[in-house]
């Protein structure tokens, strides 16, 4: 969190800087603004899309449909609750991004169940796979058969929405012994071409399952070759990187790049290194919902930041 404060009071800094906002109730609100630190309340952020060209989208992550162990005996039920939260939002989001680990074991039934649950939101869903979605015999074929249309390689793609460029990266394929997440040379080359010629003023959102910065190397919470990919993103004025995998909130700001990991809708995991392993964190039943959640991302035209609001399933 200390990163969030280091540019406070530096009014000359032309780069966008991030200010941690109040943690009010279960909704954490923070925003990056181009040169001016601004307070954004949860109410303001939710009202923002009313402005022309502005919009919200959702991030859900790590639904692990099929997981039924003591940490959460019914991951499908909590995923359903997360979709219920989306349906209850005052502003209808434009779409949903799912940052992977849709299923627990890549079984057809799990993919089917997950589809049925998210369909209830009535919104387009953009996926990337997590390592749990690569466990079929074809090592990701089941995922690609469902979600791979129009994608390249292991499933990477990009699209534009209302002036914002969205890039879906895959860092759970062909992992190397002793390593962490991996993008691979082919994907990085594709990324370079995908970004070439785009104006640096275009806001960019990158999403991938495993964090694209090293959160905790001993547990593999990072992506070995992320630095090269991020190098191509540095010239852009507003880059938002959305990840999952670690089932907890983390945030970091590096130059104009804001990194954020979302909560899981299935079960929490310990803070890196605070526990014997990154396995499911077993919490008392009454606490579980306060450790699961979704993220609302709000883009407001004319102010660089994409505001991210994390809310739990308990609220």
């Amino acid at each position: 969190m200390s990163d969030h404060d280091k540019n406070d009071h530096s009014g000359q800094d032309r780069r966008g800087f991030l200010k941690c906002m109040a943690w009010a109730g279960t909704g954490a609100v923070f925003t990056v603004s181009g040169g001016i630190a601004s307070s954004v309340s949860l109410g303001q952020a939710m009202a923002a899309p009313a402005k022309a060209g502005s919009f919200t989208f959702m991030q859900v992550s790590d639904s692990h449909v099929g997981f039924n162990k003591p940490a959460n005996p019914d991951a499908a039920a909590t995923y359903r609750e997360a979709v219920g939260k989306i349906l209850a939002l005052p502003q209808k989001p434009d779409f949903i991004i799912h940052t992977g680990d849709i299923t627990q074991l890549s079984k057809d039934q799990e993919f089917d169940d997950a589809d049925q649950i998210i369909k209830a939101a009535g919104l387009q869903v953009f996926h990337v796979p997590g390592e749990h979605d690569m466990l079929d015999e074809g090592q990701g074929k089941a995922y690609l058969d469902r979600f791979g249309q129009g994608t390249k390689g292991a499933g990477w793609y990009s699209f534009d929405h209302k002036g914002v460029h969205f890039i879906a990266l895959i860092n759970v394929a062909n992992l190397k012994p002793g390593g962490m997440g991996s993008l691979g040379a082919d994907q990085i080359e594709w990324l370079e071409k995908d970004l070439a010629g785009r104006p640096s003023s275009q806001p960019i959102v990158v999403f991938a399952h495993i964090p694209l910065w090293t959160v905790y190397a001993d547990w593999g919470w990072g992506t070995d070759d992320a630095a090269q990919a991020l190098g191509y993103l540095k010239r852009f004025g507003s880059v938002t990187v959305l990840n999952g995998h670690i089932h907890q909130l983390t945030q970091k700001v590096e130059g104009n790049i804001v990194f954020h990991t979302a909560r899981s809708t299935a079960f929490p995991q310990p803070v890196g290194g605070q526990g014997p392993s990154p396995g499911p964190l077993k919490v008392p039943t009454e606490q579980l919902h306060s450790m699961l959640g979704i993220t609302t991302a709000t883009f407001v035209r004319g102010s660089q930041p994409i505001a991210l609001i994390d809310s739990t399933l308990a609220a």
Binding site: L175, P177, G178, M180, A217, G220, P278
Partner: peptide, 12 residues
Amino acid sequence: YGYFCSLHPHMT
């Protein structure tokens, strides 16, 4: 014979 977990490759 070195081996690893292909889901969690830090496991060797």
